[in-house]
Every structure is written in structure tokens, then in C-alpha cells.
Amino acid sequence: MISMAQAFKNFWRNYLNFTGTATRAEYWWMTLYLIIFFIFWIPATTMIIIASPAHSNINFTSFWQIFTHSSLLTMIWIFLTVAVFVALAIPSLSLNVRRYRDTGLNEILVWLIFILTIIFHFYSPNDNAYVRVLPTIVTVITFILTILPTKFLSKVKILGRTH
């Protein structure tokens, strides 16, 4: 079994590796690390924005208003938050793809799920109840894929890869 420290090293070592595999332990150790990290980062960001002197004077309706009407410290923190998000987003997506591949999922389906995940992270349907079900279905499928054992789907027709 892989340790949390080794999972962290692999996460950064495989920053742009969308072709390898990632075990369940590697995936879930890194997920736990990211959850713990964001449990502290998000409240810190919220407190810094609320503590900003401009916060009480303006009714913020957009990210741009928060950014342009804040103190220098707040703007630096927001910039750092965006940089951290971008720095973590790419290897997180890479880790997901490697985890899907580890389950033995067919390469076409790996990339289809990857693309759907990206689309539904940036597209939030709110007008049609039937359309809102699709992101939920993709989320459930991706969760199931992350808990499957290594090569679990490799012998399943249509879903798995046979090599």
C-alpha cells in the first residue's frame, strides 16, 4: 500500500501524466490531503475577503468587484488562491484520468468521462431539471470508478480494455 507521503510525491511527479495509472490508495490519499488543505484554505480566504476594508462599503456581485475594490493584501491573497487552484487543477485531473485507467476502463471511455467532467465543472445548468441530472450521473460514475479495484473493468465487454 502506498503512503500519504508517496501519494503526494506521485501527485506532483505526474503533474502532466495522463497516460499512466494511479492506485486507489494513491488517489484517495491525495483526495484526503486536498480536502484537509481546502478545509483550511477556504475559510482563510473568506476571512481575508470579509476583513478587507472595502468589503463593508460595496455590495459585491462579482469576483472582479471583490478583486478591484480590495486592499493590496486581499488582492495578493486572491491572486495566490487562483494560482493555487490552477496549480492543483491540472495534476488533479491527471490523477483522475490515471485512476480511471487503473480500473481497466476502455481508453475512449476514460477520455469521454474526463471531457464530461470538465464540461460539468464549468457548465452549471439551472433551467432544466432533466439537464441537471446529467452532471449528477457523471459524478456518480466517476465516484464509482475511483473506488473500483485495479483492472476491475479490464475484461468487461465494451467498458474494459483487453490488453
Rank of each mutant, 00 (worst) to 15 (best):
M1S: 06
M1G: 10
I2H: 15
I2C: 13
A5H: 07
A7P: 02
K9M: 04
N14L: 07
Y15L: 09
L16E: 09
F18V: 02
G20D: 00
T21F: 08
R24T: 03
R24Q: 12
A25M: 15
Y27R: 04
W29N: 09
L32T: 08
L32K: 05
I35P: 05
I36W: 11
F38H: 14
F38L: 15
I39D: 08
P43M: 14
T45W: 01
M47S: 15
M47F: 12
M47T: 09
M47A: 13
S52K: 12
H55C: 15
N57L: 06
I58E: 07
F63H: 13
W64Q: 10
Q65A: 11
Q65G: 09
Q65H: 08
I66A: 14
T68W: 11
S71T: 06
L72E: 15
T74W: 13
I78A: 15
I78W: 00
A89T: 11
A89H: 09
S92H: 11
L93V: 12
V97T: 10
R98T: 01
Y100G: 09
Y100R: 09
R101S: 11
R101D: 10
D102L: 05
T103C: 08
G104S: 08
E107G: 13
E107L: 01
I108M: 11
L109M: 09
V110M: 10
L112S: 03
I115S: 10
L116F: 04
L116V: 03
I118K: 14
F120W: 15
H121C: 12
F122M: 15
F122P: 10
F122D: 02
Y123C: 03
D127C: 01
D127R: 04
A129T: 08
V131W: 04
V131C: 05
R132H: 10
L134C: 09
P135M: 06
P135S: 00
P135R: 00
T139R: 02
T142S: 15
T142A: 12
F143Y: 00
T146P: 05
I147N: 10
L148M: 06
P149R: 02
K151E: 12
K151W: 01
K151I: 00
F152Y: 03
F152E: 00
S154T: 04
K155G: 12
V156Y: 06
I158Y: 07
G160R: 00
G160K: 00
R161A: 07
T162K: 10
H163Y: 11
H163C: 03
H163L: 05
